[in-house]
């Protein structure tokens, strides 16, 4: 009964917010915004639009032209996470660090709500990485800071670290697989083999959004794993 009431209230509030934003004049319709006018014009240049198709030239360099460098960066992060896991996370029976204070009910529930908002914002930043500033790395770090918030606010919280490890490995291998597909279908490693589409659409810029989503998942799960390793300790049997 209580859950049903909560569901009803949240659905009603959601509809209210959507309706309120929908009639507002200052809020343009989804997809009808000319992104090239909003992103700093100096960074918008024709060659980049024809070749990579991203909304700004920073993304075009980071993922389009220098995709191999980005793969190297992700590898560096992977190696550091591996080192942390080897040094302080290798023993079998781990228990999480005790907090000095007892978190009350409001703190626990409030942190869950804020975590949802952080997660949605980070997913927005990751999926719109080819249109707006941001992208995989900041979005992933944002997911990880949300996990850290849950750890700080709840003294019994423990994330599913095994799932993170699987997600991280899967995302990393898919990155390499997409690079190899570029080698196979086009001429060189990590080359764009999909149509670039119109600048400003969510599904544009070829492989750039796919790679950013993979990077975001990988970075998020990696840093969350590092945080879990930091905040757990060996059980003194």
């Amino acid at each position: 009964m209580k859950n049903l009431l909560g569901l009803l209230i949240s659905v009603a509030l959601g509809i209210l917010i959507v309706l309120a934003l929908d009639v507002s004049e200052s809020f343009p319709d989804f997809g009808s915004v000319e992104v090239s006018e909003r992103v700093a014009e100096e960074y918008f240049d024709e060659d980049n639009v024809n070749e990579v198709g991203s909304g700004n030239i920073v993304t075009a360099v980071v993922v389009g032209y220098r995709g191999f460098d980005t793969l190297g960066e992700v590898t560096v992060l992977f190696i550091s996470a591996l080192g942390v896991a080897l040094i302080i996370g290798s023993s079998k029976n781990q228990k999480r660090l005790d907090l000095k204070f007892k978190p009350n009910f409001m703190l626990k529930t409030g942190s869950r709500i804020v975590f949802g908002i952080i997660l949605i914002t980070s997913l927005y930043i990751i999926t719109h990485g080819h249109l707006t500033p941001g992208g995989g790395f900041p979005g992933g770090a944002m997911i990880a800071s949300g996990m850290l918030l849950l750890y700080l606010a709840d003294d019994e919280f423990r994330s599913n670290i095994k799932g993170f490890k699987i997600l991280e490995g899967l995302a990393g291998s898919l990155f390499v697989v997409i690079g190899l597909l570029g080698l196979l279908l086009a001429t060189y490693f990590l080359q764009n083999f999909l149509p670039t589409g119109a600048v400003g659409d969510l599904l544009s810029a070829g492989i750039v959004p796919i790679i950013y989503i993979l990077i975001g998942l990988k970075v998020g799960s990696e840093i969350s794993g590092v945080i879990d390793n930091f905040l757990t300790e060996e059980e003194s049997a």
Binding site: P133, P138, M142, S145, L148, L152
Partner: peptide, 28 residues
């Protein structure tokens, strides 16, 4: 300075993650 990419990264890592980790370390 019109570097929104760097600004987002700095906001997330510099003032979010690092501060939280430092605070947690000091607490424990």
């Amino acid at each position: 300075m019109r570097a929104p990419d760097v600004a987002i990264t700095e906001a997330v890592i510099g003032s979010g993650l690092v501060t939280a980790l430092f605070v947690f370390t000091l607490l424990s």
